[in-house]
């Protein structure tokens, strides 16, 4: 018997929207190099610049847009080319930030993973994510931005999990990834408030990102952003149901008291290992995750759960359920039946 797949791992990657798929294929059909001077190249350039303007408009971004291969590359550019050296990061950043962090200060977080804005008042580059990829907690970025700027620093916000879903924060540098909001994998952007904040490296994208521009991906990213995020309202309702069902079954909602994006939730079932829960759900055709996808290959203890004070055994009992545009109430009923039934 084949089981119908049920995908509840949208924080790892979301399905490509049909209209984004069409835009991607249309971009490949107009395949010239946007940096070529001939008519075909200029046509590709026009499509790329149109995509850039559409991305900025859809995000409400007044600054510059540098297309990259994803959020990881956008973060790498920001962390290595920003005019100020890295001073501090939150300890629950994605590995894409932490691998550049060296001995930069790890800002203290509370039991929900929220950074104390007063501690971010530093005269360097400060990297704090918008939404945590494992537990969904939103950081108080307006307050953090005010503290960082008040001290003469710059704020870098990894918005991979928030962009295309909730409003962007008022940060100086922002990284986004198209595949988290229905665009194609392999496309992202670094948003820069002002060119003067970055040291150029030469090459394309005004000298800030060398490499032939991936125009088809840029078009598809713009199209995915334009699809909007109305679905989050329904996701919030569904997630509240899920939270209540887990609590009723004796489980725990991680960071329950904090402001969390509706699309991501982390749950702990005491006495049941995450690996066993994943295998049970996988056998039922249901895709969820333990911690982040990037670390779940080894199912090692999550640095995020450790940072919010969870002991290793408890952290090993946490799974992540992440909802998407197409998630329905019936999907969650099926999840609950297979998981807690």
């Amino acid at each position: 018997m084949t089981v119908t797949p049920l995908y509840l791992d949208h924080a790892a990657t979301a399905p490509l929207l049909p209209q984004a798929r069409e835009a991607l294929l249309a971009g490949h059909a107009a395949w010239a190099n946007p940096s070529s001077p001939h008519a075909a190249g200029r046509a590709a350039r026009a499509l790329l610049e149109d995509a850039r303007a559409r991305v900025a408009a859809a995000l409400g971004w007044q600054g510059q847009v540098i297309f990259t291969s994803g959020a990881t590359e956008a973060l790498a550019i920001a962390l290595t080319r920003a005019k100020l050296p890295l001073a501090a990061v939150s300890p629950i950043e994605h590995e894409a930030v932490l691998r550049h962090a060296g001995d930069a200060i790890r800002l203290p977080v509370d039991a929900s993973g929220r950074v104390d804005p007063a501690c971010a008042a530093l005269p360097g580059l400060v990297a704090v994510q918008q939404v945590n990829n494992e537990i969904g907690v939103s950081q108080p970025l307006a307050e953090i931005a005010a503290a960082v700027r008040g001290a003469g620093g710059l704020l870098l916000a990894d918005c991979a999990q928030g962009a295309g879903k909730i409003a962007l924060p008022d940060a100086d540098l922002i990284a986004i990834a198209a595949h988290k909001f229905g665009g194609p994998v392999g496309t992202g952007a670094l948003l820069v408030r002002d060119w003067a904040l970055l040291e150029p490296s030469g090459g394309q994208e005004r000298g800030y990102r060398p490499g032939t521009e991936a125009m088809p991906g840029a078009l598809a990213m713009a199209t995915a952003l334009e699809a909007g995020s109305d679905w989050l309202e329904e996701a919030a309702r569904l997630r509240a149901m899920l939270d209540a069902a887990v609590i009723a079954a004796g489980g725990e909602v991680v960071a329950a008291g904090a402001q969390r994006i509706a699309a991501i939730a982390a749950y702990r079932l005491p006495g049941r290992s995450a690996a066993a829960q994943l295998i049970r759900l996988d056998a039922a055709g249901i895709a969820v995750s333990a911690g982040s996808a990037c670390s779940s290959g080894s199912l090692k203890v999550s640095h995020v759960l450790a940072a919010i004070g969870m002991e290793a055994k408890a952290a090993g009992e946490v799974i992540r359920v992440s909802l998407g545009r197409e998630t329905t109430e019936a999907d969650l009923a099926r999840l609950l039946d297979a998981w807690l039934g």
Partner: peptide, 8 residues
């Protein structure tokens, strides 16, 4: 379309 790093 899944993430190749996902365990499912």
């Amino acid at each position: 379309f899944a993430n190749p790093h996902s365990p499912h």
